[in-house]
């Protein structure tokens, strides 16, 4: 026999060692997440209170608060949602419903997937060069929101495309058979069917924007804002930016303030993601039935 089986023991040992390594690596991932959450939550204890939520920044850790950040984030993200929602869905409709296969669609599609790989700080530099300086919007909420829009648009378009693609073509044909135009078909049949899918994707894209810090630094959001913004041309700060500034401060107590800020940020993200998940489940139920 040219093939022996004397290597059986070592092969099986190898297989078992491999499993052990795989298992350890996977458990490491879980342990790291636990360590991260414990580190943040334990430091935030005693610092996360009503005072923290309702105060403006301060030189003193005990008096520091995240109110300006929360409101700034609300303004920027709200405006981002208002601008990016129609743009993203519109672009997705064009790509899925109107454009024919060809170089134009290909170009746009390659562009979108390429943009998803561009670091967020580069979007910040674009915002700085175009919105802040060239268009003269300055270090305003508007500049921040426009930058965020450009940043999340690729993700948003892809999510909306997927939702639109899931609409069975039989539904479109049904509408055309009644003599509807393409736009009537889209607004009457396609969008209603795809709406919760689109909404879920949009919400997740926006959740990503909430955590973004680097682009906001680039467009000049200030970490230390001692007033509450009142309009889209006001200067602003955001929750992650405040966390950044607190974490970087030399006094150790500010790390606790930062931890409290992180808990707030994670809570906001959790809330938004839960909404998206609930919507997604509803959507799946309907597709099944």
């Amino acid at each position: 026999m040219s093939i022996n089986t004397t290597n059986m023991k070592s092969r099986k040992l190898k297989s078992q060692i491999f499993y052990a390594i795989i298992l350890i690596c996977t458990l490491t991932t879980i342990a790291v997440l636990a360590a991260l959450l414990i580190s943040v939550f334990s430091k935030s204890i005693g610092w996360l209170n009503w005072n923290f939520l309702s105060s403006l920044p301060s030189r003193f850790p005990a008096k520091s608060g995240i109110k300006a950040g929360i409101l700034g984030t609300l303004w920027v993200i709200g405006l981002t949602a208002i601008i990016s929602f129609p743009l993203g869905i519109g672009a997705a409709i064009y790509l899925e419903e109107y454009s024919k296969k060809g170089w134009l669609k290909e170009l746009i599609q390659i562009n979108i997937s390429n943009l998803a790989g561009v670091p967020s700080i580069i979007y910040g530099m674009l915002g700085l060069a175009v919105f802040v300086r060239q268009w003269g919007f300055g270090r305003s909420i508007l500049s921040g929101a426009l930058t965020m829009t450009i940043l999340i648009l690729p993700v948003l378009i892809v999510a909306a495309q997927e939702a639109i693609r899931s609409v069975p073509s039989s539904m479109r044909h049904g509408s055309y058979a009644l003599g509807a135009t393409q736009w009537q078909t889209i607004t009457g049949v396609v969008l209603p069917y795809a709406s919760s899918g689109i909404l879920t994707g949009t919400i997740l894209a926006i959740a990503r924007a909430i955590g973004e810090t680097a682009p906001m630094i680039m467009v000049g959001a200030a970490a230390f804002i001692s007033f509450v913004p009142g309009g889209i041309m006001d200067s602003f700060t955001t929750i992650p930016l405040q966390i950044y500034s607190w974490t970087g401060k030399p006094q150790a107590e500010f790390q606790n303030v930062a931890a409290a800020g992180i808990v707030v940020l994670l809570a906001v993200l959790l809330l938004i993601n839960s909404i998206a998940i609930i919507l997604r489940n509803k959507y799946q139920d309907r597709v099944k039935s």
Binding site: A35, L36, S39, V40, I210, G211, E212, T213, P240, I243, Y244, T247, Q255, A258, A259, I262, L265, L266, L269
Partner: peptide, 8 residues
């Protein structure tokens, strides 16, 4: 968010 990893 990456800022949280930075803190960590």
């Amino acid at each position: 968010p990456t800022i949280v990893y930075g803190y960590f």
